[in-house]
């Protein structure tokens, strides 16, 4: 197989590929951009408060925002570290 046949054998025109890549990318970006920009700050402050009482790693707190129809949900997921043998407790809070 020659170098050039690599390009020729591609059945899909590059413009079609471009459109599909854009559609997938923009679907993600639009939902990300619809989120309020205070989320990172909220995440950081929550972490600071919780860290006063328990040892916790940054990635164990997940703050997310979702809008469906007229309802927006702010979801905060905090996973506390497990002690040896104990099941990890899971704190969950949701506010609308």
């Amino acid at each position: 197989m020659s170098f050039f046949s690599l390009f020729r054998s591609r059945a899909k025109p590059s413009a079609t590929e471009a459109k599909e890549r854009l559609q997938i990318l923009l679907a993600h970006e639009r939902s990300d951009l619809a989120k309020p920009d205070y989320l990172p700050r909220l995440h950081k402050e929550l972490l600071q408060v919780i860290a006063k009482y328990v040892e916790i790693e940054e990635d164990k707190i997940i703050v997310d925002f979702e809008t469906q129809g007229s309802v927006s949900t702010l979801e905060v997921n905090i996973e506390l570290p497990s002690r040896a043998g104990a099941r990890p407790p899971l704190l969950q809070a949701a506010a609308t």
């Binding site: 459109k19 854009l22 923009l26």
Partner: peptide, 16 residues
């Protein structure tokens, strides 16, 4: 270039 499939066509950009 649109005809050759090398460039996004108008309809694609409008749809997106």
């Amino acid at each position: 270039r649109v005809e050759k499939g090398e460039m996004l066509k108008l309809e694609d950009v409008l749809e997106i």
